[in-house]
C-alpha cells in the first residue's frame, strides 16, 4: 500500500511539466552564472557589482573558487527547501481536489497514506538534489569533497527537514496558494538571514534560526574535506528540527477532517 501511494506521488511530480525543469534547471543555471560572474569579477574587480561580493573579493585574493563553492552549497539547500514546498503543495492539492477525501474513504490507514506520500516525495527530492550535486560536480567543477556517503547523509537530513516542514503546512492549510505564499516567504527570509547567498554576515546570530545555515555549513565543511566531527552539531540540529516537524505534522494530521 505505502509503495503504491509513493509511486503515485512520484508519478504526479514527474507528470507535472514545470516541476523538473524548474527544480533542476534553475539552480544549475544560477550556479553556472555565479561561476561565470566570478571569472569576470576577479580579474577586474573595479566593475560595479554586488557590493558585498566586492568586499569579499578585495579582502581575499583568489577566493573565486570558494565563492562559487558556497553559492552552490547554499543554493542546493535553498532548492531542497523549495522542493519541500512543492511536495507539500501536491499534498494540499489533494485536499483541494478532494482526492484525499476519497482516499480516506478507502480501506487505507491515514498513516500509511501519509507515509507513502512522504516516501515518494523524499525519493523524488533525493533525485533532484543528487542530480544537482552530480551535474555541478562534473560539468561545473564544483568540488563536493570526497565523502559521497556524508554528502548523501547531509542531503537526506536536509530533505527530511524540508519535507516535514512542508507537511506541517500541508496538514494545516487547505489552500495551496496561501500555503505556498507563506512557505516561499519563510524560505526566502531564511535564505537571506542565513547569509549563504549574500555573505553579509550572520545578522547578529539570527542565522542560527535558519535551516539553511545548518545545511550549507555542513556541505561547506565536507567540501573542505573536514571530518564528521566538524559537522556533528549541524547533523544533530537538522535531525532535531526534522523530528520536531514530524511531531507537529503528525499531530495536525490526526484531525478528524484533515482531508479538508
Amino acid at each position: 500500500m505505502i509503495i503504491k501511494v509513493a509511486l503515485k506521488s512520484i508519478k504526479l511530480m514527474f507528470k507535472n511539466g514545470v516541476v523538473l525543469p524548474l527544480l533542476i534547471g534553475l539552480p544549475l543555471s544560477q550556479i553556472f552564472l555565479i561561476k561565470k560572474m566570478m571569472e569576470v569579477v576577479v580579474p577586474s574587480s573595479q566593475q560595479m557589482l554586488h557590493s558585498s561580493i566586492m568586499a569579499v573579493v578585495y579582502v581575499n585574493q583568489g577566493i573565486e573558487n570558494t565563492m562559487s563553492q558556497s553559492y552552490a552549497a547554499s543554493l542546493l539547500v535553498m532548492f531542497i527547501l523549495i522542493t519541500g514546498i512543492m511536495a507539500s503543495s501536491f499534498l494540499i492539492n489533494e485536499k483541494e481536489q478532494k482526492t484525499m477525501m476519497r482516499v480516506f474513504s478507502t480501506p487505507i490507514k491515514k498513516l500509511e497514506y501519509i507515509l507513502g506520500n512522504l516516501l515518494g516525495h523524499s525519493v523524488f527530492m533525493l533525485c533532484i538534489a543528487l542530480s544537482i550535486i552530480f551535474i555541478t560536480k562534473f560539468a561545473m567543477a564544483i568540488d563536493w569533497g570526497n565523502s559521497l556517503l556524508w554528502i548523501l547523509i547531509v542531503t537526506m537530513l536536509v530533505i527530511f527537514v524540508a519535507i516535514t516542514m512542508g507537511y506541517c503546512f500541508a496538514a494545516i492549510f487547505s489552500k495551496p496558494k496561501l500555503a505556498n505564499g507563506i512557505m516561499s516567504f519563510v524560505v526566502v527570509v531564511m535564505t537571506f538571514l542565513s547569509g549563504g547567498l549574500t555573505f553579509n554576515g550572520a545578522f547578529g546570530g539570527l542565522n542560527q534560526f535558519t535551516i539553511n545555515k545548518w545545511g550549507f555549513e555542513a556541505y561547506l565543511a565536507l567540501m573542505r574535506g573536514e571530518s564528521f566531527s566538524a559537522i556533528r552539531l549541524n547533523l544533530i540540529v537538522l535531525l532535531a528540527l526534522g523530528i520536531a516537524f514530524t511531531l507537529i505534522a503528525a499531530f495536525a494530521f490526526r484531525r478528524e477532517n484533515a482531508y479538508e
Partner: peptide, 28 residues
C-alpha cells in the same frame, strides 16, 4: 463500500485509466 463524493474527486494530473486503477488498487 464504494463512495462517489458530491464534489468531483480525482487527480487532474493522471489519465482516466490511471485514476480508476489507482483507487481500485487502494481496495486491494
Amino acid at each position: 463500500m464504494g463512495f462517489v463524493p458530491q464534489d468531483l474527486a480525482f487527480y487532474d494530473g493522471l489519465s482516466a485509466l490511471e485514476n480508476i486503477s489507482y483507487f481500485a488498487s487502494l481496495y486491494g
